[in-house]
Amino acid sequence: MMHPYDPRVRDFFGADERAHQSWAHLHKADQAWIRRIVLAGGDDPGVLSYPELQELTPDESRRRLRRLEDWYKAWPYVRTAQVKEVERHLATLPEPRPQVDDELLDVPLITGPPGTGKTRLLRRAAVRALCHAAWDRRLELEDSPAAADLLVDPDWRPVIYHSTDGNPIVKTFFTHLCHEIGVPAGVDPQDSFRSAVLRHGVQTIFIDEVQMINFDGQYGMYLHNAIKALQNMNVRVILAGHNVREMLVRRKTSAQNATQTQSIARWAFQDLERYPHQTKPQIDEWRRLLRALEGHLRLAGHEPNEPVFSAQFEEHLWVSTLGYMNALAALITGVCLTASRTKSQRVTAEIIDAVRLNERVARGRTKRLHSWRAGHINWASDASGAA
């Protein structure tokens, strides 16, 4: 059975000295969700030498390829300076305390262009919130065993992670929140969820993909009213979505402007942008980020700790991805999977160029690479004229 002795899980409990006991307080559904997020890559497949690879049977080769696919599709979390800043902000927020009267707090909203790593950051923040809530619950029960009687239902669910699907009205929004913790929505989903907050100890709700919600007029007002209703239940709300700031600025009608005014007044924007490659500190950090990814390589053609990405291909990778973290993860995953199928088991420029990427970075990619190889890239302008 999985427990926080796995260092990848244990890290999310911070300084908790008895993380395994805190882990036991989490609902099985939350434990499974944490495992799915944190342990997505499975076990380390290790590096095999050329002779060892040649000795594999077809079945063994197929099994290894599948393990490599799992491993490479779950790259280590890339923590840029921007990501660290957002993490620090979330870590300093007051701890939510259901059933205790609190002042309404600003709602953090992580925003920025697609591909900058918002969803992965939000999911990991939700995992950390779950683990810290479990730590607090263990301490509460140890300090006051009678506190257990305050919870009517033993299915304690302190954190909800919800990804918005389409453009919900308030009723469907609260119906989805009820379903996230297995509560019947009933005729009045908002009232049902209000009861569930107390019964199941809901403390924090993470809502992703909020750009899917129509911010025009009444829909935007409905969203604000729903979030305010959650805050009135003493639940902390944390949002994430693509280019939300720009969506609000483009509002034109009086109703839309009212939505914008309310948003700016109550939402604390946390912006993530694609990673720049202009100044020496930026280039140094880009290399450091690539260096961290090199520890995940499992190719026989490269020596342990060889600076493959950070030295041999650091400019190549930036020109190819324009600093979008999701594009970088997709590119390196594709590169390693392709290289693992070659005889040399080495990363090459040809393999990097052959991996397909999303349209945002694919547009103008060939032209950018040609200019870079010709020495015509203007780094000061971000080399991103086609982005």
Rank of each mutant, 00 (worst) to 15 (best):
S310D: 05
R298G: 01
A265D: 14
E246D: 15
L272V: 09
E350W: 00
V237A: 13
H224F: 12
R245Q: 11
F313A: 03
T321L: 00
I332F: 01
S340C: 06
V347D: 02
I264Y: 12
M233C: 12
R298Q: 03
G334S: 07
T261S: 15
M221H: 08
N232F: 04
A349I: 07
A240E: 06
M247Q: 15
K343S: 11
P281I: 07
R245H: 13
I351L: 12
P281W: 09
N225G: 08
M221K: 10
R298F: 02
N225H: 10
N225I: 01
P307D: 02
W318S: 05
Q256R: 10
A255G: 15
L289F: 02
W318Q: 05
V319T: 05
Q278C: 10
L289N: 08
I264Q: 03
E294T: 06
S340H: 03
Q270L: 15
L337F: 04
Q282T: 06
N225T: 10
A229K: 06
M221E: 14
K280W: 00
V235Y: 02
E285Y: 05
R287T: 03
E306P: 00
C336W: 08
R356E: 15
E315V: 02
Q282K: 04
L328F: 03
N234K: 10
A265L: 10
C336E: 05
N326A: 14
Q270T: 11
N305Y: 02
N232G: 07
E350P: 07
G220C: 09
V308L: 05
I283G: 00
A349S: 09
L239V: 10
M247T: 14
D271V: 10
Q312R: 13
G295H: 07
S310V: 05
L230Y: 04
S310Q: 06
T261C: 07
N234M: 12
D284Y: 00
I351Y: 12
H277R: 13
K280S: 12
F313T: 00
V347L: 05
K228V: 14
P276Q: 09
R250G: 07
A265F: 10
R291A: 15
K228Q: 11
R266W: 11
D216H: 10
E294I: 14
T279C: 07
S310A: 10
Y222F: 13
Q312L: 03
T348S: 13
C336M: 09
L289Q: 08
A240T: 09
E285W: 05
S254P: 00
R251K: 14
H242D: 13
V335H: 03
D284E: 12
K280T: 15
L331A: 08
S344Q: 07
